[in-house]
Nucleic acid binder design. Sequence first.
DNA 1: GCCGTCTGGCTAATAGGCGTAGCTTGCTGG
DNA 2: CCAGCAAGCTACGCCTATTAGCCAGACGGC
Lengths: 206, 206
Amino acid sequence: MPRAGLSPDAVVRLALEVVDAGGPSGFAGLTLAKVAARAGVAAPSLYKHVGSLADLRREVTVIAVRELTAAGTSATVGRAGADALHALADAWRRYAHAHPGRYVATQIGADPDDPADAVLRAAGEESVRTVVAVLRGFGLPDERVVDAVRAVRAGVHGFVTLELGAGFRMREDVDQSFKVLIDMLVAGVAALATPDPAQATTGSHR
Amino acid sequence: MPRAGLSPDAVVRLALEVVDAGGPSGFAGLTLAKVAARAGVAAPSLYKHVGSLADLRREVTVIAVRELTAAGTSATVGRAGADALHALADAWRRYAHAHPGRYVATQIGADPDDPADAVLRAAGEESVRTVVAVLRGFGLPDERVVDAVRAVRAGVHGFVTLELGAGFRMREDVDQSFKVLIDMLVAGVAALATPDPAQATTGSHR
DNA sequence: GCCGTCTGGCTAATAGGCGTAGCTTGCTGG
DNA sequence: CCAGCAAGCTACGCCTATTAGCCAGACGGC
């Protein structure tokens, strides 16, 4: 009969704890039963605060996406060009290392048709906006921006995903490999900005 | 009392059907119950042919990895350099489009310590070997090969993952964006091969 | 041709997950 | 002070995986 004093926000906070406690598979291991146990409450009681497990997962995802976005923006403030892009990529990877479960949550795509995913869609677009802002510094023609954004997202996300999934042996060299990848992306984006295809990799930005 | 005539291989075949029928989430939706239904058999009967759901998933993963490897090798035979790398990347992406469920299965990382994952580990290494072979054509110094392999894997895998996960709006331009990304990787790998950097950005620390 | 054994099915049952229904009780606004 | 709302609870239904134990068909040895 003692009230546990839960609230929707408190439940989400506990869910984040569960995700964080589970390592890279923390998001997959997020379960109402675990949240309830952490709250000291029977599982069905959670439905007074949350619509469903799917809802809870979505809320966790939104928070993770926003945190990732914030990490990117705060890392790139006052920087431009290659410097900013490196900072953005490093910030993303640091976030993934610090919160692997939340980073995995980030990978969840929003259903374009589901109204319940509207907030998540907005969060994702906000995140893309950061990348666009960083790439603006390269002076890309408008029709190439989308390609550059996708390349950067794909490269960083793919690298981090492989890394978290234990896809790499030789752990010591991973930092170096990441730097090489980002250098490739920087050079590639810079090349996209120069309409003359003869000479690539001229680091001129704008 | 009529025998269904199952066998371990037949069960795996049915599992692949379930995965294929489920689209990008087919691998996540792989369940013993579904396999049993497809086999016309009660779920516990499957244990006569398969150790557990985890075992079945691993077998599916191994097959998917081998198929992906085969797609890559057959696409690159007789090609070299940028041509081969484009062919490899395209082959991977085509495989992911043709078998999204199996491609997702491919992402499962092998546990380096689990003996049960030995076959999966071997399959993954075989796959990496294809990439190494393709990159050999660029004349990379040995100590850069690992960086190049990781960059290529990360880029292609990240792109395809985002694409399958509905991470891209404006679906029409995706092919173009992929080509741009692969061009970046090709140029980046080529730049890695030339030790004289007019502008190689091999910069700050370690 | 027959018998024994092996094996591939089955049902029953356990354990754990999500989610719903309906009850009870503590807290709070008037 | 009390009525009602809200936050707990238990009990239940349905879905998973997995184990245990039973039974009958098929096949090898004689």
